[in-house]
């Protein structure tokens, strides 16, 4: 009879004693159980291998090949003589070429400093500009146009930037502004944490030569230092005193700062009439940097004349070291 329902479940009328109840037969289950160990083990091994291989690659953004480690920033006054400009550029370019660094020579008048603000302030937008142009560079080095690099063979990494070297060099627990500022440099700071390396002369912090590590902190630091209210405040020594001010008032800046002995990378050349001989920081033969501090600003002095002997000495060094 089509369409009628059978009153009984349609099952075999002669079942076996043990009808399997499970959808997957028992022996298949056992198989899965046996295989499962190997599957899980295999996956674990795979992930472990991936983790091992992946762990080796550096974290954070990849640094493209050919990125300079250091950018040397020297703002140039447009009133400088062309021969002077050439000498300064030659000096830095040679050093940069040896160690794979980059150089940057902006004009001091390139940036909007606001009216009646000393041009020396332009080193800050210059540095910020270099950050924009070389976003992958590790360090920025501001070297004043009054200074010369006197040992072209020494890379900054060996000299200063290596964390261990830096830790051995840095002056801890020293008043930031000599002789008796209550604010002292941190007594415990790790080399990797330092973002700002500079030197101190007899009068205070010296900004003729300083290093800033690229990063968010650098932007904060340079912007804060360059604030219009500091520029308009008429600090006696312009940005140098502004720096002393922010370092003493703002812990987030002091915490990143390392003072190193002046002659590491900012030796001063005594003034020609020996008014100021800079006892501690005076340049001696073999020093890395010779800074003719004040030679451009002081109308009675001539950078060209003062630099002449060291310039010829530098040329000798350069040629002898290239030959080697």
């Amino acid at each position: 009879m089509p369409g009628t329902q059978f009153p009984y479940p349609r099952k075999s009328s002669t079942p076996t004693a043990y009808t399997p109840q499970r959808s997957i037969p028992l022996h298949q289950r056992r198989n899965i159980k046996n295989v499962a160990t190997y599957i899980v083990g295999g996956f674990t091994l795979l992930f472990f291998v991936i983790w091992l291989l992946g762990g080796g690659s550096p974290k954070g953004p990849r640094i493209p090949l050919g990125t300079p480690e250091v950018v040397i920033v020297t703002p140039l006054d447009p009133n400088l003589s062309q021969s002077m400009v050439d000498k300064i550029q030659e000096n830095r370019k040679d050093y940069a070429a040896r160690h794979g660094y980059a150089t940057f020579f902006p004009n001091t008048t390139d940036y909007d400093l606001m009216p009646s603000v000393p041009l020396t302030w332009s080193k800050l937008p210059s540095m910020r500009h270099a950050l924009t142009l070389w976003p992958e560079a590790a360090w920025l080095w501001h070297l004043s146009s009054e200074a010369l690099i006197m040992s072209p063979g020494e890379p900054l990494r060996n000299k200063l930037l290596d964390p261990q070297t830096l830790e051995s060099l840095m002056i801890v627990d020293k008043p930031v502004v000599p002789p008796d500022s209550v604010i002292k440099t941190f007594s415990h700071i790790r080399g990797e944490r330092v973002d700002f390396i500079l030197t101190q002369d007899q009068e205070g912090l010296s900004v003729g030569s300083f290093l800033v590590r690229n990063g968010e902190w650098a932007k904060f630091f340079l912007d804060a230092w360059f604030d219009p209210l500091y520029r308009s405040y008429n600090f006696q020594k312009a940005e140098e005193h502004a720096l002393e001010h922010i370092v003493q008032w703002h812990g987030t800046i002091l915490a990143k700062l390392a003072l190193v002995p002046q002659r590491i990378f900012n030796s001063y050349i005594p003034e020609p009439d020996m008014r100021n001989t800079y006892t501690d920081g005076q340049y001696q033969q073999g020093d890395f940097i010779a800074n003719f501090r004040g030679c451009q600003k002081d109308p009675t002095r001539s950078c060209d004349e003062e630099m002449a002997p060291l310039m010829s000495r530098w040329r000798e060094l350069r040629d002898s070291q290239w030959k080697r």
């Binding site: 909007d112 937008p125 210059s126 500009h129 976003p135």
Partner: peptide, 17 residues
Amino acid sequence: GTSADPNAPKYTNYLDP
């Protein structure tokens, strides 16, 4: 990167993207 003065000479914009 400038002091927003329309009459000022053209200065370099030094800021990052």
